[in-house]
Design a protein around this nucleic acid. Structure first.
Lengths: 227, 227
DNA sequence: GTAGTTTGTGTCATTTTTACACAAAAATAT
DNA sequence: ATATTTTTGTGTAAAAATGACACAAACTAC
């Protein structure tokens, strides 16, 4: 029993984990094992402990509930409406993460966790649908400033992969030649020699990797990819 | 006495209120009347009540402590490190607001509140310095997408005023003719006829006001002012 | 091998950006 | 009053970025 002179809300973290399967953005959801909303899908998350920072809580809860150990969790909004949890007053700090496709069906012990395409989300517990929508909005703004491909694509990729990612996130489509020109001019990607991407049902494509140094400069100074 | 089965942190809100005096950005601070950090300067803010949303708390606390009733408070980050308050575990949700200069030395009953230039901030209580810095970073990103001049400048203003605002926020300087051309082409401002801005020690300048409709379009669709 | 899919490649017109200088109007100093 | 200082108003030319656009080559699937 923990007593306070004034009433205290509970504080949780929730994580919206995005991945890209080459066509669509996906989100990692768990199935709730307890009431309320037992059996419904929800974002991985849980209560903040007093001896951990909120950021640490987000990382820990995500790992505990899905097996994913994520390098970077980006806090994007805190949801603090009255009544968003039927049990008690709960304020949740929401994070999003980007993971590479290697980890989507990977060896993580994500028994209860599963990926859902953004446009085929099941009904979610609490206000988690609103949280996912807010995360997506945030990602769409972020993509203008941060070269997020680094975190969502495999180590090596084709320019078409990168273009599909941008198109999926922003919901638009680009001219292939103009897109390539812009990306190449930025110096963000480096061509990987002696390798081609086969198996797409067409002419093999040149493969690229991100230039980590240039990538970090962009993260620091801002990156402007405007279409 | 309020008791819980598990320990709960306290949750507060803090507000970074920015104003622009024509030269520099200023921040509204209060002087703490109680321990801890009694006598030190701090951001206006306080504990979230269970019957109000976190957003409502931010508005209420700002009004109670400074007399300012702000139309829009923008939540930008939640600070959740362990030990950031010596009394107990406190997580704070931070907001920022922009106010017009009319309200800076205005009739608000802001007895204990005072404005400080950003580059002359006193030492602050808690981690509030870090919060101010984060707010400024956020404002610098925001200015690229939102025509914040509407909220920081008086109803009518000169293009030089607007340019000084951008220069103060971003810490750079622009060519006057190129700046004017870009602003005018955007259609964001409308010239106010029959009035000139005298008293600046030079040739009188044409005065402008924001086009509210165009302003709202920009807020919805995004606004790109790149220099 | 045939059809279908995907990649690689370049140019031109338009738009946008950047750099840059001097005269006019007012305030200030003498 | 007069001179000096400060601030505003105005245009152009070169460079860079953007957007539109088509066809041949390399592979896969059948």
């Amino acid at each position: 029993m923990y007593s306070y002179q004034y009433p205290h809300p509970a504080v949780t973290t929730d994580c919206v984990v995005f991945a890209f399967d080459g066509r669509r953005l996906k989100v990692l959801l768990i199935e709730r094992g307890i009431q309320p909303f037992k059996g419904k899908h929800a974002l991985p998350g849980g209560f903040v402990r007093l001896n951990e920072s909120v950021d640490e809580c987000a990382v820990r809860e995500l790992r505990e509930e899905t097996g994913l150990l994520v390098e970077r969790l980006e806090q994007f909004h805190t949801f603090g409406a009255v009544g968003r949890d039927p049990r008690e007053r709960v304020i949740t700090v929401a994070y999003f993460a980007l993971v590479k496709p290697e980890r989507v069906s990977g060896g993580d012990d994500a028994a209860a966790a599963a990926w859902f395409a953004l446009d085929e989300l099941p009904s979610l517990a609490f206000d988690h649908r609103e949280i996912v929508d807010a995360a997506l909005t945030c990602l769409r703004e972020d993509i203008h400033f941060h070269p997020i491909g680094f975190e969502l694509l495999p180590e090596i990729f084709t320019l078409t992969d990168l273009q599909r990612l941008y198109e999926a996130v922003l919901g638009v489509s680009f001219d292939r030649r103009n897109f390539d020109r812009k990306i190449l001019k930025s110096g963000l990607v480096i061509r990987v020699d002696g390798q081609m991407a086969h198996g797409n049902g067409g002419r093999p494509a040149a493969v690229y990797r991100f230039d980590a140094q240039r990538y970090n400069e962009f993260k620091r100074d801002g990156f402007r990819l405007e279409f």
